[in-house]
Simulated scan of single mutants.
Amino acid sequence: MANSATARIAEEPGGDADAAAKAAALEADFDELDDTKHELVADNLIKDYVLAATAASIVPVAFFDIAAVVAIQLRMIQKLSHLYSRPFSESAGRKVIYALAGGVLGYGAGYMVAASATKLIPGIGWMVGMVSLPVVAGASTYAVGRSIIRHYEDGGTLLDFDSSKMRAFYKEQFESGKDLARKVKGKARKEGFKEEAAS
């Protein structure tokens, strides 16, 4: 779009190189604005899904919480695929989620299963699971989302996603995601108390 406008200015009789250069610079500015807007939309999308995953992990039923978090992460990948104009398939999305979370021990799937299983312990089990699972679910969702964005920005698709190349980045993003998930968990808890007090 922008390149064709520059070409037209340069080809027009009497069109000058200065005008073409100015048009090219203006087009580059618009492209940069589009990239920034794109990044902001993707970032906000991930934050929304971190909130959803954190809330879903509060469900007191063991293992149902994990299924809910995986479904939320799949929906996030679908939305990011649409945003970046990449093809989406549920099976490829699941493979990416399991490869990232399962391939990094202590940074996702293994820890989530253990935390969810504590909900089976009568009495105190649900409380133990509630302490850590929301943070892990939120951080994992954040790390999956950031990994997908990095891969898409490098020109990849779900079909050529190589989790072994993304593990270090996933770990780094998981740690960053913990802070966001803690804030989200605290906010959800405060809002829950407000609702209880109002009723």
Results as ranks from 00 to 15, higher is better:
residue 3 N to L: 12
residue 4 S to P: 01
residue 5 A to H: 08
residue 8 R to L: 15
residue 8 R to I: 13
residue 11 E to W: 09
residue 13 P to W: 14
residue 13 P to H: 13
residue 13 P to D: 09
residue 13 P to M: 06
residue 15 G to M: 12
residue 16 D to A: 09
residue 16 D to H: 15
residue 17 A to W: 10
residue 18 D to N: 11
residue 21 A to Y: 08
residue 23 A to F: 02
residue 24 A to H: 07
residue 25 A to I: 07
residue 27 E to D: 07
residue 37 K to N: 15
residue 40 L to F: 11
residue 42 A to C: 08
residue 43 D to E: 14
residue 43 D to Y: 13
residue 44 N to A: 14
residue 45 L to P: 04
residue 46 I to A: 10
residue 47 K to I: 11
residue 48 D to I: 04
residue 50 V to P: 01
residue 51 L to E: 15
residue 51 L to C: 12
residue 51 L to N: 15
residue 53 A to T: 11
residue 55 A to F: 00
residue 60 P to V: 08
residue 63 F to W: 06
residue 66 I to E: 14
residue 69 V to M: 04
residue 73 Q to M: 10
residue 74 L to P: 00
residue 78 Q to Y: 05
residue 81 S to C: 10
residue 84 Y to G: 03
residue 94 R to W: 01
residue 94 R to K: 09
residue 98 Y to F: 02
residue 99 A to G: 06
residue 100 L to T: 02
residue 101 A to P: 02
residue 101 A to Q: 09
residue 102 G to Y: 02
residue 102 G to N: 04
residue 103 G to V: 06
residue 105 L to Y: 09
residue 106 G to C: 05
residue 107 Y to D: 00
residue 107 Y to R: 00
residue 111 Y to I: 10
residue 113 V to K: 12
residue 117 A to I: 07
residue 119 K to F: 01
residue 127 M to Q: 15
residue 128 V to F: 13
residue 131 V to N: 06
residue 134 P to T: 14
residue 134 P to C: 12
residue 137 A to H: 05
residue 139 A to G: 11
residue 142 Y to T: 04
residue 145 G to V: 11
residue 147 S to I: 12
residue 147 S to A: 13
residue 149 I to P: 02
residue 150 R to Y: 15
residue 152 Y to F: 15
residue 155 G to K: 08
residue 158 L to A: 06
residue 158 L to I: 03
residue 158 L to G: 07
residue 159 L to H: 14
residue 159 L to C: 04
residue 160 D to I: 09
residue 164 S to H: 12
residue 165 K to R: 14
residue 181 A to G: 09
residue 182 R to W: 07
residue 183 K to H: 06
residue 186 G to T: 03
residue 186 G to N: 11
residue 194 K to D: 13
residue 196 E to A: 13
residue 199 S to I: 09
